[in-house]
Design a protein around this nucleic acid. Structure first.
Length: 134
DNA sequence: GCCAACGTTGGC
DNA sequence: GCCAACGTTGGC
């Protein structure tokens, strides 16, 4: 069981939209590193849902319900996507500011590669963020 | 709205 | 296969 973090700009695709829809294919990723991270995902893996630009905070948790498959929005057929189901919102959102201020989270890919939209999260980081969300 | 970081494209 | 030019992301 692995953990991940996925980013979305809330005015394009927000947590609320995802909750309303239930399951959503994570289309539109056009970056090989992000794409490779999705390839490595397994059914049941969980991911934090992060709002970039507006909010800049982790707002909820989703679960992988469909493995890497072709992304219909990619005309060239080069990129794929996984599908995520919304599981639950965090009681308290965990902001980028908090993450930066927490030494245990200083190694997160979110901070080191700010432009990477799908990144891995370690068990320790996952637990730490969950503890901040209570 | 600016701009740094960085990934991608395309000419050579 | 290199690398300059260009485009995009995302924090500030």
């Amino acid at each position: 069981m692995a953990y991940w973090l996925i980013k979305s700009e809330p005015y394009k695709w927000s947590w609320d939209m995802h909750v309303k829809k239930g399951v959503q294919g994570w289309d539109g990723v056009r970056n090989y590193q992000a794409s490779n991270n999705m390839k490595a995902m397994k059914i049941g893996d969980e991911a934090f849902f992060y709002h970039s630009n507006e909010g800049k905070e982790i707002v909820g948790i989703v679960e992988v319900v469909k493995l890497y498959h072709p992304d219909p929005t990619d005309e060239k057929g080069r990129f794929g996507m996984v599908s995520f189901k919304a599981i639950r919102p965090l009681k308290k959102f965990v902001t980028l500011e908090q993450i930066k201020a927490t030494p245990a989270l200083s190694g997160m890919a979110l901070l080191k590669q700010s432009r990477l939209s799908v990144s891995p999260v370690t068990q320790a980081e996952w637990d730490c963020i969950l503890s901040l969300s209570h």
